[in-house]
Design a binder for these strands. Sequence first.
DNA 1: ACACCTGGTCTCGAAAAGAGACCAGCAAAG
DNA 2: CTTTGCTGGTCTCTTTTCGAGACCAGGTGT
Lengths: 128, 128
Amino acid sequence: MCEAMDGWRDQGFTSADCPVRDVVDHLGDKWSTLILSLLFIGPKRFGALRRAVPDISQRMLTQTLRDLQRDGLIERQVFPTKPPSVEYSLSALGMSLQTPLNALIAWAVEHHGAIREARARYDRAEAA
Amino acid sequence: MCEAMDGWRDQGFTSADCPVRDVVDHLGDKWSTLILSLLFIGPKRFGALRRAVPDISQRMLTQTLRDLQRDGLIERQVFPTKPPSVEYSLSALGMSLQTPLNALIAWAVEHHGAIREARARYDRAEAA
DNA sequence: ACACCTGGTCTCGAAAAGAGACCAGCAAAG
DNA sequence: CTTTGCTGGTCTCTTTTCGAGACCAGGTGT
């Protein structure tokens, strides 16, 4: 697809290592963006994240966190407390994502109404 | 999760109609972002999109386009040519997404290397 | 008559996600 | 001193989703 990236297409990206694919696919994990936006506020423990996103399964939370950690966006730190607690926090790389991601979130908030209207219109039209 | 959205949490969003969920989930469709980034360049026909993204199945392309259309981000126009051709283009709403989405794409391009390194580091560490 | 272009839809097997049980280790309650 | 609960996970099972590829209509070129 990097055919799309006007200025970037000449840099020799194939589908496989196209930055857009590589990065956006992960943000497209449905949960990743959500988790990141929570960590923008500050470090959170596993349980806190689970409570903050009630409809994520424990399994997916674990997996999402691991993926983000693997990509170097977040850091995992285990504290040897009585019930050992695990804290997740943004890495420097993760921090740098904050600005563009927040811009996107702001767009979402601003145009949410328009999208819901468009959806309703579409559904009404196809019902006929 | 809208607990996360500092300023927005008090506006009465539940999980169900939280703008972040509603919008980001769709961008998280893996293909949506890709298709949108192609349409930022200009209107494209179905076949052109399929050729531009070689590893998308026809089924998913159709579905992705329909979802984007439903959300009012793109418009579909049928031309009654000999083999009827269909052109997809951005709506005004879709246009407004261009700036924030491009910011994200720019981030992806800039930090792609760092992510790949982090990934390699992680994989090397867990292999031990 | 034949293959072929267009933009799709239908079916089927594989892969991924969700729900929920289960686990170890320790602490406080009873 | 047994029970209950908290911690952060993993394992299994079921449901959803996805990808590959066949098929379709209708017109055109050969």
